[in-house]
Amino acid sequence: MKSIEVALGERSYPIYIDSGLIDRAGDMLTPVLGQAVVPIVTDPNVANHCDRLRASLDAAGIASEAIVLEPGEATKSWRVLERLCDRLLEMGIERSGHIIALGGGVIGDLTGFAAAILKRGCNFIQIPTTLLAQVDSSVGGKTAINTRAGKNLIGAFHQPARVLIDPTTLDTLPPREVGAGYAEIVKYGLIDDADFFAWCEAHGAALLAGDAEARAQAIAHSVAAKARIVGEDERETKGRRALLNLGHTFGHALEADTGFSDRLLHGEAVAAGIALAFAFSAEQDLCHAEDVARVAAHLRASGLPDGLAAAGVSASGAALVDHMRHDKKMEGGSLPFLLARGIGETFVANDVRLDTVAAFLDSRPR
Results as ranks from 00 to 15, higher is better:
125 I>H: 02
174 P>K: 08
171 D>C: 07
148 R>W: 08
170 L>P: 05
136 D>S: 10
115 A>L: 09
97 G>T: 09
172 T>N: 11
136 D>G: 11
108 G>Y: 01
165 I>L: 09
119 K>D: 13
129 T>K: 04
144 A>Y: 06
124 F>T: 04
96 S>H: 15
108 G>I: 00
148 R>C: 05
122 C>M: 14
147 T>Q: 09
118 L>C: 13
110 L>H: 02
141 G>N: 03
102 L>E: 02
93 I>R: 02
142 K>H: 07
137 S>V: 11
156 A>P: 04
136 D>N: 09
93 I>V: 15
153 L>T: 06
92 G>T: 03
121 G>M: 09
177 E>W: 08
138 S>P: 08
158 H>A: 14
109 D>Y: 07
95 R>H: 12
151 K>T: 13
132 L>F: 09
158 H>M: 14
162 R>M: 15
174 P>M: 08
86 D>A: 15
128 P>N: 01
148 R>P: 05
123 N>H: 15
140 G>W: 00
121 G>V: 10
133 A>T: 11
117 I>D: 06
143 T>A: 04
154 I>Q: 07
129 T>F: 06
143 T>M: 05
133 A>H: 04
142 K>L: 07
146 N>G: 08
159 Q>C: 13
94 E>Y: 03
143 T>G: 04
128 P>A: 03
103 G>W: 01
148 R>A: 15
149 A>N: 08
155 G>M: 06
148 R>V: 13
95 R>V: 12
154 I>K: 05
136 D>A: 11
144 A>G: 11
162 R>A: 15
148 R>E: 15
133 A>R: 03
94 E>S: 12
164 L>Q: 04
144 A>I: 08
152 N>F: 11
89 L>C: 12
176 R>S: 10
166 D>W: 02
135 V>C: 04
92 G>W: 10
123 N>A: 07
148 R>N: 13
171 D>M: 09
118 L>R: 12
124 F>N: 02
163 V>K: 00
151 K>Q: 13
132 L>C: 02
128 P>E: 01
176 R>H: 10
133 A>W: 03
109 D>N: 13
101 A>K: 00
158 H>P: 03
155 G>F: 06
128 P>K: 01
110 L>E: 01
168 T>A: 13
105 G>M: 03
100 I>P: 00
143 T>E: 05
139 V>G: 00
123 N>M: 05
156 A>V: 07
150 G>R: 00
168 T>F: 05
168 T>I: 11
102 L>M: 06
110 L>F: 08
144 A>Q: 04
108 G>L: 01
124 F>M: 08
127 I>F: 07
114 A>I: 08
111 T>F: 06
141 G>V: 04
169 T>E: 03
97 G>N: 14
160 P>S: 13
